[in-house]
Computed example of a mutant assay.
Amino acid sequence: MTTTPRGGRRLAGLAALALAAALILPIAAPSAEQTDRSAPIRLAQATTPETAAKAPDVFSPEQKKAIEAIIKDYLIANPEVFLEVQSALETRMEEIQAKRLQAAISSQAEEIYRSPGAPIAGNPTGDVTVVEFFDYNCGYCKRAFGDIAKLVEKDSKVKLVLKELPILSKGSEEAARVALAAKAQGKYWEVHRALITLRGQANEATSLAAAEKAGVDMAKLKADMKSEAVTQEIARVRELAQSMGIQGTPHFLVADRAIAGAPQNLLELMSQHIAEVRKDGGCKVC
């Protein structure tokens, strides 16, 4: 059986795709000077629904079916094209997200790194700031906490800014309110540690129980949970995350370097970024 070389099939497929693209490109009606068969046909530079509706069909129904068959055969013979397209799309989306993030960092550095309402752990005057967006019911956030705690313990120059981003459930916001209320009593880190390592669902009941074990004033805590300051902090973080294009937790910033998710080598990756930031002269945005 004779087979077409792979490169030939790819070229044929690309040609078919190009023809398919032509189906949606209306062709401008020829002018008086272009009635001659040798005159060039110009593609419309801009189209509207009205002009597109008036544009004549370029191919007959039979030709369209033939082109569709070529495209179908090509894609079936070369399914890896879909992976190539997906890979290209992911790369493009990562580039767009990186640009969006850098723009947000430039315009909202004060809110990201120095917001007075955000809880802080580690060294408040550290030379490199690590920011974490998290949800108490996020399994990956729970897994990442061990590395975060180790980083703060081993590097006395790191400032950790914690952004409560309760997006998974009603219980997530209830837990966030408990933790933020504990901040008013200087007990945020203790309650945060208890909640992020909590087994099972984090909600108001389980979070209050954890806070009580941490030794907070429960009457004051319950009042502060409903305070405007707590409500505004949660709203600010949600708005900030949206402007930065953050759609899931955890999400980390090491200075202006992003780490999405909780990779297995998170501690190593963060330590590497911190060392590079210091080598480059320190954090320029923190």
Rank of each mutant, 00 (worst) to 15 (best):
R6K: 12
G8Y: 08
L11V: 11
A15T: 14
L19K: 02
A21H: 09
I27T: 00
A29V: 06
A32L: 11
Q34Y: 04
S38Y: 06
I41Q: 06
A44E: 15
Q45F: 05
E50D: 07
A52H: 07
K54W: 00
F59E: 08
E62L: 11
K65N: 10
D73M: 05
L75F: 10
F82Y: 14
V85S: 07
V85W: 09
A88T: 13
T91H: 07
A98W: 03
A98C: 06
E111C: 01
T125C: 02
G126D: 12
C141G: 08
R143M: 09
F145G: 04
K150N: 10
D155P: 00
L160P: 07
K163N: 05
L168N: 00
S172K: 10
V178H: 04
A181P: 07
G186F: 02
N203K: 02
T206I: 04
L208Y: 13
A209K: 14
K213G: 01
K213C: 01
L221Q: 04
K222H: 08
V230D: 00
R236F: 05
A241P: 00
G245V: 03
H251F: 15
F252I: 03
F252N: 00
V254F: 06
V254H: 06
R257E: 15
N265I: 02
N265V: 05
L269N: 05
I274M: 10
A275V: 11
R278H: 14
G281Y: 13
C283N: 13
V285D: 09
